[in-house]
Design a protein around this nucleic acid. Structure first.
Length: 746
DNA sequence: GCGTAACCTGTTTTT
DNA sequence: CAGGTTACGC
């Protein structure tokens, strides 16, 4: 086979070993995608399986699409029937077939993060809890990680209350919210992102015959980016593979950067334990970067404790040294980067698209954009607000969702008064109350509003119900495009936007039109049986920033977060904002494990570069609206200084972990940030006995302290005045507690 | 019920 | 700085 001959020896071995469990550890730039594509093509051309018998799970839709296209070039049109996509999209598809077994209809809708948090927020309000103490985002995160461990609402309290670091109050409240949340999602015939995984898992556990069907169906299972799978994904993959044992996982533990989202690096570290007969292949030859870049990356990642042994190397040229860009402040940084891009374009004959500027947080893009505009360099920005998350698009989608699933509570709340029909917050609250008291679903109350007596708002609610019912009827048997046209027209959104005086509403109008174009494209693309609103909405819900297609072919510089850059490569990479507290992020400074994830993130950033690498930091940066002094990131100093341009680093590293004093100073900074009165200096009282520390607030009874100090802060209320910093023996692990908002870093 | 203006609060990363 | 929330006047 032609495509096999072009591989190197290791790659070839990994490709032709098709039977039994296989783990491929693929270093950055080692041709991972090539191997996966070749492997699937090999299975097909050897007639080991039909396309629809192969399940290939990827991390993004875009990765799936690209791989499918490449396979199609090798083996032809049959690649279209491969089961290839993200965990979430493949499992949604399975869940639509099997939904009735779980008590959903096949037209269930999907709640994105915003929907989930909005629902949690209303539950918190209904329970009369303080929104400032129990934050919806924190609750959602806690529920989400519980779901990823397959801990249901009924087991939640038992599970977490036994943890030594548990905050009883919080656990109790979340447990309650969790139970309501689950119930409301089910009533709404909606699944959140986590449900798409846990429901699939539960489906297979409860119905062995269904599991068996899919075990037989999928002769080969391949999983890309295995280092970023979470526990549920891991369990499902193992269940599906247990019959044929043909599971091939591909990944690089050094590039695991999604632990915050539940990814469990142990999945890849333990693969050999899970499958003792597994064959492991290591792809260590880097085709992408210069030797300088490969060595720098190796040196950095060597500082991590949790990793598989690997020796990445390259036959590429030595290449130029890594440049360090020191700047007075963040504005100067942006401007210098922009100017350097202009310079490099001439010196190395690069195009705009050969450049990427990577950063830790999306907020950093603003200044960079300003500078690029000023210098006249066109740029393309990835991430930020993706098309399907914009307000006007979500409004339009809400009407579409209601047409297939009127029970969708979040969709109802979104558009019941948009365009305005005189149904305000109080009315909505009343409707929800009616639903709760009568054990009904929100839609059932709205549809039968007259049964609950006649009010000022009855007519308005009735009209809304009529509109939804009308849409629901009208779209039966329509394809996605025709359905959208009809529903959008009925909704009155376009008129609302068109008649508005506000200038930004014109572009919103254009976006809604663009949504209709997307539906047309969808209807032309998908097979007949999937050409309906439910599937279109599913695609929209699971669409991510990283899937965004370039809609123009103009040569532009690329701007994105490092997370968004995973899997991409550029000739010249700038990493901006390499400062302590920003990268590594201030949120991660206390836990070695989190620092390791930040380091892997840095590793990912470094290894995106093919030829040139510029590391940049500013000595002053605007944060919280005021100027703060910074010190260069510890990660810069982990690179061999011989690999850096000489004399380029003028500042010395912040002294880390040298003594408790320094550690305390860091913690104080941190505390000041947390405190409501950051300008005031905290007074420090040393408390020799840890018991004293425990007695300060009732809520900490469940914590175990090592040696601790107590700080009294000049806060607005009593809670703000109390904080405890706890050091364990080696002075490394730090717990930071503030009773007002107990923030625990395990 | 709705619109505006002052006010508060808090910053990772995203399927 | 920015977004989200509250207070207030219509």
């Amino acid at each position: 086979m032609n495509f096999i001959n072009s591989l190197n020896e290791e790659q070839k071995k990994a490709v032709i070993h098709t039977e039994g469990p296989v783990m491929i550890i693929a270093g950055a730039g080692s041709g991972k995608t090539t191997v996966l594509t070749a492997k699937i093509s090999h299975i097909l051309t050897q007639n080991l399986a039909k396309p629809h018998e192969i399940l290939a799970l990827t991390f993004t839709n875009k990765a799936a699409r690209e791989m499918r296209n490449r396979i199609e070039k090798l083996v032809g049109i049959c690649a279209q029937s491969l089961w290839m996509g993200t965990f979430h999209s493949i499992f949604s598809k399975i869940l639509r077939f099997e939904s009735s077994n779980l008590g959903y209809t096949s037209s269930f809708t999907i709640y994105d993060t915003e929907d989930s948090q909005s629902l949690i927020k209303s539950i918190i309000k209904e329970l009369n809890l303080d929104i400032n103490q129990i934050k919806p985002s924190a609750v959602h995160h806690t529920i989400s990680s519980a779901k990823n461990k397959l801990i249901g609402a009924d087991q939640f309290e038992d599970f977490y209350i036994n943890q030594s670091s548990a905050n009883y109050d919080f656990v109790y409240q979340v447990s309650k919210i969790y139970q309501y949340y689950e119930r409301r999602c089910r009533d709404a015939n909606a699944m959140d992102f986590d449900d798409l995984l846990t429901n699939t898992c539960n489906l297979f556990r409860k119905f062995p015959e269904i599991l068996l069907k899919y075990q037989h169906k999928f002769k080969y299972i391949l999983i890309d980016e295995y280092q970023d799978t979470n526990h549920v994904q891991y369990l499902i993959a193992n269940m599906l593979a247990s019959k044929n044992q043909n599971i091939c996982v591909v990944g690089d533990d050094a590039q695991s950067i999604y632990a915050f989202r539940g990814a469990d690096i142990q999945n890849i570290l333990n693969f050999q334990k899970d499958y003792p007969h597994a064959k492991t292949f290591k792809l260590e030859l880097n085709y992408r970067s210069t030797n300088t870049i490969v060595q720098a990356a190796n040196k950095v990642i060597a500082n991590n404790h949790y990793q598989l042994k690997k020796n990445c190397y390259t036959h590429n040229e030595e290449g130029d040294k890594i440049k360090i860009l020191e700047n007075f402040n963040d504005q100067e940084e942006a401007l210098k980067i922009a100017n350097l891009i202009r310079e490099y374009k001439v010196r190395y004959s690069y195009l705009n698209e050969d450049f990427a500027i990577l950063y830790r947080i999306n907020a950093q893009s603003r200044l960079l954009e300003d500078a690029l505009r000023k210098v006249g360099i066109p740029y393309r920005i990835f991430g930020g607000l993706s098309f399907y998350r914009r307000k006007e698009i979500k409004d339009a989608l809400a009407y579409l969702k209601l047409a297939v699933n009127p029970y969708d509570e979040e969709a109802i709340k979104r558009v019941i008064n948009y365009p305005a029909r005189g149904i305000g917050d109080t009315t909505i609250e009343k409707l929800i109350q009616l639903a709760n008291h009568n054990q009904l679903k929100l839609w059932e109350v709205i549809r039968n509003i007259r049964h609950f007596g006649v009010n000022r708002f009855t007519g308005a609610v009735e009209n809304f119900a009529k509109l939804i019912l009308q849409n629901q009827k009208a779209i039966i048997n329509l394809n996605a495009y025709d359905a959208i046209q009809l529903v959008i027209k009925n909704s009155g959104i376009l008129n609302e936007l068109k008649n508005s005086n506000e200038p930004e509403n014109h572009s919103r109008w254009e976006n809604v039109i663009e949504l209709m174009n997307a539906a047309q494209e969808f209807s032309n693309r998908v097979p007949q049986n999937e050409n309906n609103l439910a599937y279109f909405l599913q695609e929209a819900s699971l669409f991510t920033d990283q899937d965004e297609e370039d809609n123009d072919k103009i040569d532009k510089v690329n701007l994105m977060t490092i997370h968004a850059a995973k899997g991409l490569e550029f000739s010249c990479v700038f990493i901006a904002g390499l400062e302590e507290n920003l990268f590594p992020s201030s949120m991660t400074l206390f836990e070695p494990k989190q620092i390791e994830e930040e380091r892997r993130l840095f590793y990912v950033a470094l290894t995106r570069a093919k030829k040139h690498l510029v590391l940049s930091y500013a000595k002053n940066r605007m944060r919280f609206g005021n100027l703060t002094q910074t010190s260069p990131s510890r990660f810069i100093f982990e690179i061999d200084s011989q690999l850096l341009e000489s004399n380029s680093l003028r500042m010395t590293p912040a002294k880390l972990n040298q003594s408790n004093n320094v550690q305390q100073a860091t913690n104080l900074t941190k505390l000041k940030q947390v405190s409501n009165s950051p300008t005031q200096t905290p007074k420090i009282d040393f408390v020799p006995d840890p018991i004293d520390a425990i007695q300060i607030g009732k809520k900490v009874e469940h914590f175990k302290f090592g040696k601790g100090i107590v700080l009294s802060l000049e806060g607005k209320n009593d809670d703000d005045k109390k904080a405890v910093i706890d050091f364990n023996q080696n002075g490394q692990k730090t717990l930071l507690l503030k009773f007002a908002k107990l923030k625990v870093i395990e």
